[in-house]
Design a protein around this nucleic acid. Structure first.
Lengths: 387, 387
DNA sequence: ACCCTCTCGGAAAACGATTTCCGACAGAGA
DNA sequence: TCTCTGTCGGAAATCGTTTTCCGAGAGGGT
């Protein structure tokens, strides 16, 4: 391995000088600097980040944990975050939690052991992820993204799911679909819980009816299973509201296979607006989460923990033209999140920094496509498939 | 930060002893060991991987570079590799090349700077990726996965694309589809080049006809664009053979939108067998790459560079029931790969270790679904969607 | 001429682990 | 009893940087 010492010798200076030239930490004589840079070039020297990190006590590296790299919504999030961090010279260390809190905890520890100086986490489980994340928060600056784990003293950047689901239900009711079925994931993570609660509230508020919710997992398989049960049960609703796009794709596939007319007989909606939502027949009406804004906010919060002010959340901006939700993002719901916290075994999770973690929520946008009857808004198609 | 020193003091021993207890490097008195472990537990000590790596000159960490984390095929590969490496106690550092050789080179450097002790790479570009990879090979043990870059002195674990494409063409010809169109990515990476060449050969061998190949990128957008051109051009082929599933999904969507009957009027095939291939109407006939075998082989090669013998490549094993290709994997093609090497500017890429890198190729499997007429084999459906 | 302030290079002390080396002690064999 | 071997703990060197700290020399003001 070629070290700074080698460069120093070749350039005929001390290692201190080499370090100063390369890091620009202090002014050094122009000619010396020149010699150093030549030597570096010639030897192909690159600074050893292990040594550097050890000495500096920072690594310009942030960790990111996601529940499932295979889920296109998370891939998109990873890409957005990665781009932003790279732009400011930070490196991202990515960990796949494999949808398993144990693997997640393990991954988090491995990240911490590497002296990352920041952690971006999308918790797998609202409860089971708390311990590892709370511990992490004690060591590095932690920001929760998309989901929150209960009782973790860390900021959260997320989406206003109540608004998203409400928009879906309003849209369906506006199309005279008043018998709904909700297929989503069990209340394992905060998004699932919030969406389910929002659905119930929306049903109550609009006065339509709903079959008992079918809660499983955020997967295509669950969508298939639930739809199969619906079809076999014989009591088809007028619309199936799905907790995310993967579920919706599963539901759609089964319905179509079973010969159920979509959207004529049953309408279907998703959530996330993954690229594949435009590739089915019919294309899928869904709720687009403002991924870039989320990534920007999370990264911002991670970098300068300084600017404490929630810096008025941007409304979903670049939604091409589809019906953007009316309501501006509400920086509210700190209460709602604390609710979740309250639910956890308080003795179990030591509430470390009681500095009232801030919650920043962004408004999603309803994207109307063919899977809901084209009575009102015209269907959009093939906008921005990023995959 | 709690250091080994703290543990040593609390336990009343020297740091050397602590280190020995924790790493099990040498026998230590039972009672002392007990005290050390208690102290560790009590302080919540975890070893600092920066310091450890610096001293040991190895990190038990391997890097992995993929062209695009958003492509489901690569996500699947990442997951398979990650699971395998985790099992043997290694950590994976993941880098997204964003389909850009420059970003890829940058990422590779960042990995090297972290003293990884192995690198798994899926090169973005057969030519443009060579420099960075060749340099990487000089520093760490490198294994190329799925694709090869020209002139890089490193092993390759890949799939026999000639067999895959040939199987597709044979299948179509067997169904009396003799006018084909090939839509794929330009010969930027080795898989695209190999598939294109294989297609031409297969057409020649079977005596069917083909429109001029349409080469773009491995994306849904390109599939859409190419299909649009096909439809607008008015000369529809009997079947469209696509270079990967993303392209095929794009083609499928456009054809169906345009009212072209699939598969009755035009059959469509993909390549990769990503989970979404079962979610379209019709479901997509495709070529499944044996991801687990690939991952296992690559990881194996990375770990014990020792077992030089190619260890007879496994035939695709757990393919549920679909028509598995006849031919067993050919450990051949070292010649083919060197071909690629020969193509590059020899003066540019210093051929470091001329130990004849080995090439290991696995047999893919044809998966017949609804997008090809169900004359012969019965269509499979909804087998193993992993997303 | 004298002193004071800057500027800038190098020696050396960290950072937190691992690993050699050394010395102490115990037990065995003669 | 004496030596010889073997086991095991601790002191210290080391990994490759960064960052004090120190000292030398230059230049300016009185």
């Amino acid at each position: 391995m070629v070290t700074m010492r080698d460069v120093a010798e070749l350039a005929g200076v001390s290692v201190a000088t080499v370090s100063r030239v390369l890091s620009g930490a202090r002014q050094v004589n122009g000619e010396l600097a020149e010699r150093v840079r030549d030597a570096q070039e010639q030897l192909g020297y690159r600074t050893n980040l292990l040594a550097s990190g050890l000495r500096r006590q920072r690594t310009d590296t942030v960790g990111m944990v996601v529940p499932q790299v295979g889920n296109p919504y998370f891939s998109a999030l990873m890409e957005a975050v990665g781009r932003r961090l790279q732009r400011v010279g930070k490196t991202v260390l990515l960990v796949d939690a494999e949808d398993d809190p144990a693997a997640e905890a393990d991954g988090i520890h491995r990240l911490l052991d590497r002296s990352i100086d920041g952690l971006l986490a999308v918790p797998v489980d609202e409860r089971a992820s708390s311990a590892a994340l709370t511990e992490a928060a004690a060591h590095v600056h932690l920001v929760q993204l998309d989901r929150a784990a209960a009782g973790v003293p860390a900021d959260l950047v997320a989406v206003d799911h109540r608004a998203g689901i409400r928009a879906v239900v309003d849209h369906l009711v506006g199309l005279e679909r008043r018998e709904l079925a909700f297929v989503s994931a069990g209340p394992r993570d905060s998004t699932a819980r919030e969406r389910a609660k929002a659905f119930d509230e929306a049903v109550a508020a609009t006065g339509c009816t709903a079959q008992p919710s079918r809660l499983g997992a955020y997967t295509v398989e669950w969508g298939r299973a639930a739809a199969t049960a619906l079809v076999d049960g014989g009591r088809l609703p007028a619309a199936v509201v799905c907790g995310n796009d993967l579920i919706a794709l599963g539901v759609l596939a089964v319905l179509v296979e079973a010969g159920v007319q979509v959207p004529e007989r049953v309408a279907v909606t998703g959530y996330d607006d993954i690229g594949f939502a435009t590739l089915t027949r019919p294309t899928l009406t869904t709720v687009r989460q403002p991924i870039d804004e989320l990534a920007a906010a999370a990264v911002g919060r991670l970098l300068h923990a300084s600017s404490a002010e929630p810096a008025v959340p941007a409304v979903a901006t670049d939604a091409p033209d589809p019906a953007v939700l009316a309501g501006v993002a509400s920086p509210v719901d700190a209460a709602g999140a604390v609710d979740a916290a309250g639910a956890v075994d308080a003795a179990d999770v030591p509430v470390a920094a009681q500095d009232a973690p801030t919650v920043q929520r962004f408004a999603p946008a309803l994207i109307v496509r063919d899977s809901t009857p084209v009575g009102g808004p015209v269907a959009q198609r093939g906008d921005e498939v990023s995959l």
